[in-house]
Structure formats: C-alpha cells, structure tokens
C-alpha cells in the first residue's frame, strides 16, 4: 500500500516537473538549456526518440519486462502514453514554429500548452489508478471495456486533437500554396496524417461502441496517421538535403 502511495506521488511529481520543464523549454525567453529545442534537428530527434520509445514500450515482450520494475500495475502504459503525448507536443511545437502559426504556437507551447500537457498526463495517471488492471497488458487491451480505461484512451486522443487541431489550417494552406511541388506533397502527407488522427478522435464514441475486438482496427488508423506524418517530415528533410528549392527556383539568367 505504502509502495503504491509512493509511486503515485512520484508520478504526479514527474508530471508536474515535466510540465514545468516543457514550459521552461518552450517559453519565449528560452534558457540556454533549451538549445536542442531551438534547432529543428534537435526537435525532430527528440520527437523521434520519444515516439520510438512509446512504440517500443508497447511491444509485448518489452512491456512485460518493464512491468517488473514499474511500481504501478501497467505503469509502462502510462510511460508509453506520456512519451507519445510529449512527442506529439514536440511535433506541434516544431510545426507551429515552421509554419509560423501564432494560434498554434499560443495553444501548444508556453503556459497554456504546458497546462494542457499536465492535465492530460494527470488524467491518464488518475484513470489508470482508477482502473482495475491486475495483469500486464500493453495498451490496456484486456481492460478496454472498463470506463476508466476508455477515459484513459480518450484523454490521449483528446490531447492529440488539442495539439494537432490548430495546425490543420496552416498545414492545409501550405499543401496548396507551397511553391515547391515536393513541399506541397510533404505538407499533404502531414495533413492526411493529422486528418486521420482527428478522425479517430471524432470517431472515438463509435470505437467505444464497436467493442474491444475493433480496438486494433482503430489503432491501425493511428499507425497510418503516424506513418503519413513521419513520411511528410522525411520528404521535407529530403528536399532540404537535395536543395530542391535552390535547384527549382534558380534565379540565374542563363538560358543555355
């Protein structure tokens, strides 16, 4: 019992510290320590690491192994979800800065963004504690029919929608206006990924009614959406490494 109370209080402390750190790193007066987040490559690397960690932690073998060390039953799922939500926040931050969207920036980063992150992480922790999950189960698959688990999943989806929602318009605008064809394609991929994510959020009530058997079908939507976003980011990286903009919009006068 004491162990559990200790683990819960530590989890809340971690969430609070994580939120404050996120706020500190993304505030306008960025301290020296946030240099990694100032660089696009640093943000992308961090997002990649967090996203990979979230997927790796959810793999059955690794999940079972980590459960030995985690004081809360299915605490690994909490860690994986926190990693995924932080990855989404970093992606949101990355794209909000790149597309120069003030609305997205004010929603995703700074005090408002940190508060949303802390609320979402706390919600995930509280719902996990409220749920009865004695056996280790990646993505809490065995307990999908418990209301607390439904809320747990819903909170993660809602936070994703909160971050991606304000970015939809800037991404759509760029997918139509980017003068580079490859850039338009990349933005379209990201847009499709975001739309799929939003569609899953909107369709969540349907997912609840569909029952536990349909869980992995809906999970597939998230996987496809992640793949689209990652491919879109890769396309931008490809355009940068190949200097496609410089090659396409040559301002030289030679007609040879």
């Amino acid at each position: 019992m004491n162990d559990s109370i200790y683990a819960i209080s530590v989890s809340f402390m971690l969430i609070l510290l994580g939120g404050l750190t996120f706020h500190r790193l993304t505030s306008k007066t960025t301290p020296e320590g946030a240099r990694a987040l100032l660089r696009p490559s640093g943000r992308l690397a961090l997002m990649g690491i967090l996203l990979t960690a979230a997927y790796v932690f959810s793999m059955p073998g690794i999940y079972q192994f980590l459960e030995i060390f985690v004081p809360i039953s299915n605490g690994t799922d909490l860690i994986a979800k926190c990693c995924a939500m932080t990855a989404v926040a970093v992606l949101g931050l990355h794209l909000a800065i790149a597309y120069g969207s003030e609305t997205a920036t004010s929603w995703i980063i700074g005090k408002r963004g940190a508060l949303a992150g802390v609320i979402a992480a706390s919600g995930v922790l509280i719902t996990l504690l409220m749920a009865d999950t004695p056996e280790a189960s990646p993505r809490l698959e065995l307990y999908q029919e418990q209301p607390a688990v439904e809320w747990n999943e819903g909170i993660v989806l809602a936070y994703t929608a909160y971050v991606l929602g304000p970015l939809l318009l800037p991404v759509l605008r760029d997918s139509r206006r980017n003068p580079l064809r490859f850039g338009r394609l990349a933005s379209r991929l990201i847009f499709v990924g975001f739309v799929l994510s939003m569609a899953r959020v909107i369709g969540y009530p349907l997912e609840l009614r569909a029952g536990a058997e349909a869980f992995y079908i809906f999970e597939l939507v998230t996987h496809v959406s992640t793949a689209c976003v990652v491919l879109g980011l890769w396309a931008f990286a490809f355009a940068r490494s190949r200097q496609l903009a410089r090659k396409t919009f040559d301002t030289g006068l030679s007609i040879k």
């Binding site: 696009p40 990355h94 794209l95 800065i97 790149a98 597309y99 760029d174 980017n178 003068p179 580079l180 850039g183 990349a186 980011l233 396309a235 931008f236 990286a237 490809f238 355009a239 940068r240 490494s241 496609l244 903009a245 410089r246 396409t248 919009f249 040559d250 301002t251």
Partner: peptide
C-alpha cells in the same frame, strides 16, 4: 519573374530548413 522566383525560393527553402 525574378522577384517571384526569389520569393518562392525563400519561402520553400525556409520551410524545408525549418521542418526538414
């Protein structure tokens, strides 16, 4: 034409640098 190309280049390069 040159101005348009320059603007297109600057926009595309800025975005590819920031996102990629």
């Amino acid at each position: 034409r040159l101005r348009q190309r320059k603007e297109a280049f600057e926009y595309a390069e800025k975005l590819t640098d920031l996102i990629g």
